[in-house]
Design a protein around this nucleic acid. Structure first.
Lengths: 242, 242
DNA sequence: TGGACCCTCACCATTTCTGGGGAGTTGGAA
DNA sequence: TTCCAACTCCCCAGAAATGGTGAGGGTCCA
């Protein structure tokens, strides 16, 4: 049972992506997929927990550089909107009401980005955030028909991108996620929900001095500079759940 | 172009899931899917940022209750392992070396959970963590053949579960995720990476007094009791990226 | 043109956290 | 058995964060 019958043309690309091992393969597959769909652009990128970025796609490099330089990451409604969701979204369903957003949109279209767009976001365990986006120039009806009829296929493609991107991710190795002891987890968890040290100590029925030992131990294990940093890292690494 | 040809039997269930609107539908679909695949169990559940849980599946309710009561959430290698990944994983690839994990495994099998398992994790924007799991009793080869040949289909099914679960999620409404101002975002971000207030103020080229206004403002917006709590919430809600 | 929100700066006193020591028990692993 | 990691408790003093209140300027929108 294969996908070829349903996904003529993309099945091979999907397999190529699943078997790829170099970042360059991503670029190759993005271009091939863009051409297959006959759309303006196809882009995949993610940011790691350390703010590192990785991406591939068919955008004009000038636009990519401009995007970074202008700090559009903090303005782009696609980023803002997808950060709150985690499922496919049509760009026109996002909030473009702010002045900065409209200026950004105008600038983007001026650099070749289409007037239509569709993005599939996903989140990784270490605070990573990835986005798989399609863009094209056409009217709303055409775009909606295109995205809806290819929705499932696009989900699988985005999954393949995500899988490979995380496998190849450089940002994971340096921090082997040293585990916290049970008491340390309890302490960090309570701190993360707003308890003061005194409250945490009381909740855990231990002296505040003892609690300090846990916090400092956790801070050391996490390579954190202070309690807030330690809690942030524990959260980002999924060591605690709040 | 439909999926029926490739996914005989599950296509209708997938659509039923995508069109469902009540939590009860989840349960119905889980059972139908379990029967379709002729496996021991099929389970979907997630936890929200506030620790609320939602789930459906074919596990014995006695086992579910025992799982919660025993605090297995903090022992279960499936949870632990999937928290660090975000792609399909076979249970036997997880770390079962600890004594607690082996005791848990024995207890699980004693309550009808299969010796084989396969889980697809996903993370939501507000710290949610969801898990779609299959379990069965069979040998490794049979299980691997089953999961690999149905991998893409299972990804789509898990996506449908996730989509619906987030749509129906009760935990989102009470916190409308009041946005932070740009300065507040910068301040919280720098605090999250370990900067002290003095360092943040210097980095942002503002007085420490001004910085305090941002922190307190952010704390108020986030309903946080202290800075650590505010940073934790900002992280959980995806308002800042570290 | 007023209201709302953002950015900037300042004082006070108090609470909380941090960094440096040391020391005893337990239970599991080598 | 020996060792290590986790858990528990204590001292001190300085650094940092907090809570409350006040004030002026800017932009944007209704």
């Amino acid at each position: 049972m294969g996908f070829a019958a349903n996904f003529p043309g993309t099945d091979g690309l999907l397999e190529q992506l699943e078997n790829s091992s170099k970042p360059e393969d991503f670029q190759e597959v993005s271009v091939a997929l863009r051409d297959h769909y006959a759309i303006a652009h196809l882009v995949y990128h993610w940011v790691s927990a350390d703010g590192e970025q990785f991406g591939c796609g068919t955008y004009d490099p000038v636009w990519v550089q401009r995007y970074v330089e202008k700090g559009y990451l903090r303005i782009d409604p696609v980023i803002q909107g997808c950060y709150q969701r985690f499922h496919p979204v049509d760009w026109k369903r996002l909030d473009w009401s702010s002045k900065a957003a409209r200026a950004f949109q105008k600038d983007a279209i001026g650099h070749g980005v289409g007037n239509q767009g569709y993005s599939i976001p996903i989140r990784g365990p270490n605070g990573q955030f990835a986005l798989f986006s399609l863009s094209h120039n056409c009217n709303d009806e055409t775009w909606q028909l295109f995205t809806e009829s290819n929705r499932r296929e696009l989900i699988l493609i985005s999954h393949a991108f995500n899988q490979k991107a995380l496998e190849l991710e450089p940002g994971r190795k340096p921090e082997p996620a040293q585990p916290l002891s049970p008491r340390e987890v309890e302490a960090m968890t309570l701190l993360a929900v707003g308890y003061s040290r005194a409250q945490v100590a009381e909740t855990l029925s231990i002296s505040e001095h003892t609690l300090r030992v846990y916090i400092e131990s956790a801070r050391f294990k996490l390579g954190a500079m202070n309690t807030t940093h330690a809690v942030a890292r524990a959260l980002s690494r999924g060591l605690i759940v709040v």
